[in-house]
């Protein structure tokens, strides 16, 4: 039901919002984890949120963001993917300790 609702909502957003068509032009940095990042994050928001919030967060900062998305916003991201996302965001869109 949740998945059904999610896809319905996404379709409704697509129909009601011409802007999302331009999401297709967002290019995240290419890496092994990129498909997982796009697949998980795009369920709820465009991935320009990642670009916009770079580069100033350390690993702990990105970790807090992922945790917020999972535990507060209810994003169904597997633990394996959470680790992939954290590595990617820290490396490509974060700053060193």
């Amino acid at each position: 039901m949740k998945t059904l609702l999610a896809s319905f909502a996404f379709a409704a957003t697509l129909a009601g919002t011409a802007a999302v068509a331009d999401e297709a032009n967002i290019r995240l940095k290419d890496a092994a984890e990129t498909p997982a990042v796009v697949a998980n994050c795009s369920v709820c928001h465009s991935v320009d949120y990642i670009q916009m919030n770079s580069r100033f967060m350390k690993r702990a900062g990105w970790e807090a963001e992922i945790k917020k998305m999972v535990s507060v916003m209810g994003a169904p991201v597997s633990e394996a993917d959470q680790a992939r996302l954290l590595d990617y965001l820290t490396r490509e869109y974060g700053v060193a300790e």
Binding site: V20, D22, D48
Partner: peptide
């Protein structure tokens, strides 16, 4: 990642994120 972009019914504004807008 910013750009000037016109949402339907709007004139160009500075895009911070597309979705949510």
């Amino acid at each position: 990642s910013e750009e000037l972009y016109a949402l339907p019914g709007k004139r160009p504004l500075i895009k911070r994120s597309f979705r949510p807008p």
